[in-house]
Simulated scan of single mutants.
Amino acid sequence: MISGWRAGHDPDGQVRIGLPGWTYLPAALGVAFLTLPLIAVFTEIDWGDFVSLVTSESARTALVLSLKTASASTLACVLLGVPMALVLARGRFRGRSMLRSLVLLPLVMPPVVGGIALLYTFGRNGLLGQQLEAFGIRIAFSTTAVVLAQTFVSLPFLVVSLEGALRVSGRRYEEVAATLGARPTTVLRRVTLPLVLPGLASGAVLAFARALGEFGATITFAGSLQGVTRTLPLEIYLQRETDPQAAVALSLLLILVAVAIVLLTHRHRTAGVL
Rank of each mutant, 00 (worst) to 15 (best):
L38A: 05
S161W: 00
V146Y: 05
A76E: 00
L127P: 14
A76H: 04
F215V: 04
L19Q: 11
T144L: 15
T35S: 15
A182V: 04
T43F: 15
R183C: 13
G21M: 09
A249S: 13
G4A: 04
L65G: 05
E174I: 03
T265D: 10
A249W: 01
D49P: 11
P110M: 01
L256M: 09
L206G: 02
Y173M: 11
G170A: 02
T192A: 02
P156T: 05
P233D: 03
L263E: 09
T186P: 06
G4I: 06
V113F: 12
G164Y: 02
G21A: 10
D46S: 11
R189G: 02
I255P: 02
V51F: 13
A117L: 10
S3M: 15
A209R: 03
L29S: 05
T74H: 04
A201K: 11
A178S: 13
A7S: 10
W47C: 02
L166F: 02
L127T: 12
S202I: 01
G115I: 13
Y173S: 15
L256N: 01
A258E: 03
L75I: 10
V112W: 08
A211N: 10
S161F: 00
T121L: 11
L166A: 05
T179I: 15
E163P: 01
Q239W: 03
T143K: 08
V257Q: 04
A222E: 07
D46V: 03
L63G: 07
R92Q: 05
L254F: 08
A62L: 07
V228A: 14
T242G: 09
V82R: 03
E214N: 08
A89N: 00
S224I: 14
P83H: 07
V146E: 02
L200F: 01
A145C: 08
A165Y: 03
V64W: 09
T220H: 08
A260P: 05
R189W: 15
T35C: 14
E163F: 00
S58G: 11
V196L: 00
F122C: 03
E241V: 15
V147P: 01
L104Q: 12
P156R: 07
S3I: 10
P198S: 09
T242N: 10
P184S: 05
D12L: 14
T143V: 07
V113K: 05
L19D: 12
S154K: 02
D10E: 11
A222F: 09
R210T: 00
A32S: 12
V262H: 06
L212I: 12
H266F: 10
I116N: 07
W22M: 15
L75G: 12
P26G: 02
F157P: 03
R90E: 06
L250K: 04
L254N: 04
T55P: 03
R171A: 13
L197D: 03
